[in-house]
Simulated assay, not measured.
Amino acid sequence: MSWDPGGATSSQSKLYIYLKFLRMEQTFFSLPMAYLGAFIAIRGIPSPYVLILIFFALFFLRIAGMTNDNLADREIDAVNPRTRTRPLVTGAISSREAKILIIVGLTGFFVSAFLVNRWAFLFSPIVALVTMTYPYMKRFTAFANYQIATVQGLAVFSGAVASAGVGDVSLIKVITSVPWLFVIATILWAVGFDLYNHIPDAEFDRKSGLHSFAVLLGSKALLFAGLNQLFSVILDLLADSVYNLGPVAYASTILHGLVMAVAFYYATKNMFGKAFYYNIYSSIVLGLGIDLDILLGIPFT
C-alpha cells in the first residue's frame, strides 16, 4: 500500500526528482494512443513532422498537467502517508519552480498544437482545460476518474486531428476521421488503471472529503475497474472491425486485453503499483500493433 509513482528523496539527483515529480514514464500511456489515432485517421503513416509535434505536445501537456496536479494537492499529499515524499511536499521542488513548469508546459503545448495545424490549435484549449481542471474536480465528484481518463481518450482524438487536419481540410472532414470507438475504449481503459492509483487511498480520501469511485464503491471498486477495462477491450475489438483493420490489430487487441487481465490479477493481490505500470505495456502493445497493421495494409482498403 506504500507505492507512490511520484515519490522521491532529497538525496537523489535534481534530474531524477524532476522526472519522478512529472512521472514522465507515464507519457507512454498516452503516446501509443495518440499515434494510434494519427495512423487510423489517415489510414497511413503521418509525416515525421506531425509525429514529432504529437510527441512534443504530449510531453509539454504532461509537464503542465502533472505539475498542476501536484501543486493543487500539495497540502493533501503532506498528510497522506503514501505521498509524503513527493518533491513539493519535501521542498525538493518549490512552488515557484512548479508555477514556472506550468507556464513552460502550457506554452510548449499550445505552440506545438499551433505548429501542427489550425484544427489542432483550435481544439488545444479544450484539451488543456480538461487536463488542468482535474485536480479540482475530485473535490466534488467521483466522475473525476472519468475526467482524467478522458485526457487519455483525448490523446487518440488529438493524434487523429493532428494527422487528418493537415492542409486545407474542413472541420467536418477532421471530425469524421477521428476513430471515436477507440477514443471511448481508451477512456474506459484509463478509468480502470486510474482506480489502481485511488483504491489504496480510498479511506484517506473519504476522510479528506475527496471523491473517486474507490470512495463511492468501496470494496466493489476493483470490480468496477475491471468491468471498465473489459468493456474497453470489447469496444477495441468492435473498432478493429468497424475500421477494417487486419489480423495484427486483432492479435494486438487480444494481447492488450491479456496484459490488462494480468494487471487486474496483481491488483487483486494489492500489488497496485505493478498493476498500474502493466497498463503502460498494454497501451504500447495496442498502439504499436494497430500502427503495424496499418503499415502492412492487410486487408487493403
Rank of each mutant, 00 (worst) to 15 (best):
S2K: 14
S2C: 09
W3F: 15
W3D: 02
Q12V: 14
Q12L: 11
S13T: 13
L15H: 13
L15K: 13
I17T: 15
Q26A: 08
S30N: 14
M33Y: 12
A34W: 10
L36V: 06
I40C: 06
R43H: 15
I45K: 07
I45M: 09
V50G: 10
I54Y: 08
L58Q: 06
T67K: 01
E75A: 00
A78N: 02
N80Q: 03
L88D: 02
S94R: 07
A98C: 06
K99G: 08
V111G: 11
V116L: 05
V130H: 08
M137L: 06
F143I: 05
A144K: 04
A144N: 04
A149Y: 03
A162T: 06
V166T: 09
L171I: 13
I175P: 15
L181S: 13
A185W: 08
T186Q: 01
I199Y: 14
D201E: 02
A202Q: 08
R206Q: 08
L210Q: 11
L216S: 13
G218M: 04
L223W: 11
N228H: 14
L230M: 04
F231D: 00
L235H: 13
V242T: 10
Y250E: 05
S252L: 09
L258C: 11
A261Q: 01
F264C: 00
Y266G: 05
Y277H: 15
I284M: 14
V285R: 05
